[in-house]
Design a protein around this nucleic acid. Structure first.
Lengths: 192, 192
DNA sequence: TTCAACATGTAATAAGTTACATGATTCT
DNA sequence: AGAATCATGTAACTTATTACATGTTGAA
C-alpha cells in the first residue's frame, strides 16, 4: 500500500540503516506496519532516488560498513501530504484467526498449540513495548510526557501496540483453554 | 497470502454468493482478513476449479440470479492441512497509525479529524459485533454457549474483533484529545 | 573454525489493488 | 427516469513474498 510513508515516519526518529530499520519493523512497527527486510532495502533505494531521504555511508571498524538514511525536507513534505489525504481502512491478515474460525471442523490440538505460541510471543511484545514506553518518557510520568514531551507520535503508537498485544495475550489464553475444554477427549485420544 | 483459507473458513457457516461473501468480509471478517470484493470473485472461481468448493446457480425471481458456494470434502481437508502448518505472524498495515507516528512533524489537525472518523467507525463495529455475538449464542449466556454451542470458532473470532474495535475506539479518542491539547493554538490559528 | 550477528541486495513468483465494464431488479 | 442494491466479472498495474546470493566481523 504505502510502505514509503511508514519508512519515512520511522526515519523521523533518527538515522537508520536498512538492517536497523528491518529490526525496528520486525519488533515495534510491525504492530501497525508489517514489512519484510527485503522490502526495506528496495524501498530505501527508491526513496533515495526520488529525493525523499538522504543516504550516507558509515564506515565501521568493528563491523561491516553500512548506509544510513535521514528524511529530507521533501520527505517531510510528502508525509504532510500523506497526513492530509483520507486514511484507508486498516488491513489485517491473520492466519491464526482464520484457523480459530474454522476450529470446529479441523484440528483442535494444532490450533491450541499455535494459540499458546502466539500467547508467548504476545507476552514478549507487551514487555518490549513497556520498555520502549519507559525509555521514551524518561523521568516523566505518562501524563506529563504526553503533555510536554517532544514527540508524542511514537509514544501513542507504542501504547496502541502494547494494548493490542495485551488483548492478544488474553484472547489466545482464553481461546486455548476453551478449545481444550471442549476437545479434551480427542486431544488425549487422537483421531477419536 | 492465503485468502483461500479465509474464504473456506467463512463458507463453513453456510452457502454464500460472491456478493454476500464480500459483505461478510467487509464487516465481520475484515477484523482478521481484509479482502476487496473483486478478489473474492477471482478466488471463488479458482476454488471451484480446484474442487475445494461447489458452486450452484440460484435462480431468483425478485433479483438477479446468483451463484452460491459450499465447501467440499476436499475443501475441509485443505483447512485441516492449513490448521496444522505453523501460522505466519499477523500482517497489519494501518495508514492511520503511520500518520499518528509522524504527527509531531505533519498536520495535527488532519490527524485529529481522521482519529475522530475512525472512532466513529470503531464504535459502529463494536455494536455490530455485539449483535453478532448475541445471534450466535442465542438463548445461552456466553460461558454456556462456549461450553456447549455447536461452533465456537466464529464466536471466538468475533469476540476478538469486538475487543479490538473497543480498544481502537478508546485509543482514537484519547489520541485525538491529547493531540488537540498540544496543538490547540495551531488548530485555532492555522499555519501558526 | 563454525556460529551468530551485521550488512545488502536481486529475481521470480504470488498476491493484492484500482480502474474498467456490464447488467438485473426494486424503490422512489 | 434515476438511484440504490444486487450481482459478477476482467485487465492493468502495483506490491509483497519467497528464494537465492554474497560478503564482513566478532565471539565461542
Amino acid at each position: 500500500m504505502a510502505l514509503r510513508h511508514a519508512v519515512l515516519a520511522v526515519l523521523l526518529s533518527g538515522e537508520f540503516s536498512g538492517y536497523q530499520l528491518a529490526k525496528v519493523f520486525d519488533t515495534g512497527v510491525a504492530n501497525f506496519w508489517y514489512a519484510a527486510p527485503q522490502q526495506l532495502y528496495v524501498e530505501l533505494a527508491k526513496l533515495e532516488r526520488t529525493g525523499l531521504v538522504d543516504g550516507r555511508l558509515v564506515i565501521q571498524l568493528d563491523r561491516p560498513n553500512k548506509r544510513v538514511y535521514t528524511v529530507t525536507e521533501a520527505g517531510v513534505a510528502e508525509l504532510v501530504r500523506f497526513a492530509e489525504v483520507e486514511a484507508k481502512p486498516a488491513v489485517i491478515r491473520d492466519d491464526l484467526l482464520v484457523k480459530v474460525h474454522a476450529v470446529d471442523r479441523t484440528d483442535a490440538r494444532a490450533v491450541v498449540a499455535q494459540l499458546e505460541d502466539r500467547a508467548v510471543q504476545a507476552a514478549a511484545k507487551v514487555e518490549l513495548f513497556d520498555g520502549t514506553l519507559q525509555t521514551l518518557r524518561g523521568d516523566l510520568d505518562e501524563d506529563a510526557f504526553l503533555a510536554t514531551g517532544e514527540r508524542i507520535g511514537p509514544y501513542l503508537t507504542c501504547l496502541r501496540g502494547k494494548r493490542f498485544e495485551q488483548e492478544n495475550l488474553d484472547w489466545c489464553r482464553r481461546g486455548a483453554d476453551l478449545i481444550r475444554a471442549r476437545w479434551g477427549a480427542e486431544m488425549r485420544d487422537p483421531g477419536a
